[in-house]
């Protein structure tokens, strides 16, 4: 992994790239969806924070990358446009959705994981692997050379998916 460039994804953002690149992010209650085209070694990650976009108090919809329902289709759109590939070329992996701050009454992590699953199903894509839930944060490193995601839950060993 040492010669590969590392791209970091922030909250409510998308990164798409072609190998040799590693896309990395840290997650709490947010969820990361990784899409990968194994034959072309291209992929992307969305790091969204809420399940559903809604108008804000000022009546505006904010960045679509913040929400599962608008962000996951946007990730697929970017991958298709940038690399001229069809939807069927991609497989999905899902990570995150932990309940890190325990006093929060609404379980955003769980809601985010469910939303990601539903939207990927609606898009008729395959979920190849996932590691979600729990009470600790996640670090993921998505290697576009292999399509493997190295996932570390805080305090535990890294596991490859």
């Amino acid at each position: 992994m040492s010669d590969e460039k590392i791209l970091s994804v922030g909250v409510g953002d998308i990164q798409v790239a072609k190998a040799p690149i590693i896309i990395t992010t840290y997650l709490g209650s947010c969820v990361a969806v990784c899409l990968y085209a194994p034959l072309h070694k291209v992929g992307g990650v969305i790091h969204f924070m809420l399940p559903k976009a809604g108008p804000t108090h000022e009546g505006l919809i904010l960045k679509k990358e913040k929400y599962a329902d608008t962000g996951i289709p946007e990730l697929l759109r970017q991958l298709k446009n940038v690399f001229k590939l069809e939807k069927d070329a991609f497989v999905a992996k899902i990570f995150g959705g932990a309940n890190v701050v325990k006093s929060v009454s609404r379980q955003f992590g769980q809601e985010n994981v469910e939303a990601a699953g539903e939207i990927i199903k609606r898009l008729r894509m395959n979920i190849l692997a996932s590691h979600t839930g729990g009470e600790k944060g996640y670090k993921i490193m998505f290697d576009l050379n292999t399509g493997k995601v190295n996932c570390t839950v805080f305090g535990g060993p890294p596991i490859e998916y």
């Binding site: 909250v11 709490g28 804000t56 960045k63 890190v100 701050v101 944060g137 670090k139 805080f154």
Partner: peptide, 26 residues
């Protein structure tokens, strides 16, 4: 309000910190 203690990766702690505000603003 009562403090919430989080023991985790820096990235995760900071993310949980900004969550409430980030939901309403970019």
């Amino acid at each position: 309000t009562p403090p919430k203690v989080v023991h985790d990766f820096l990235g995760t702690v900071f993310q949980e910190f900004v969550m409430g505000t980030a939901a309403e603003r970019d």
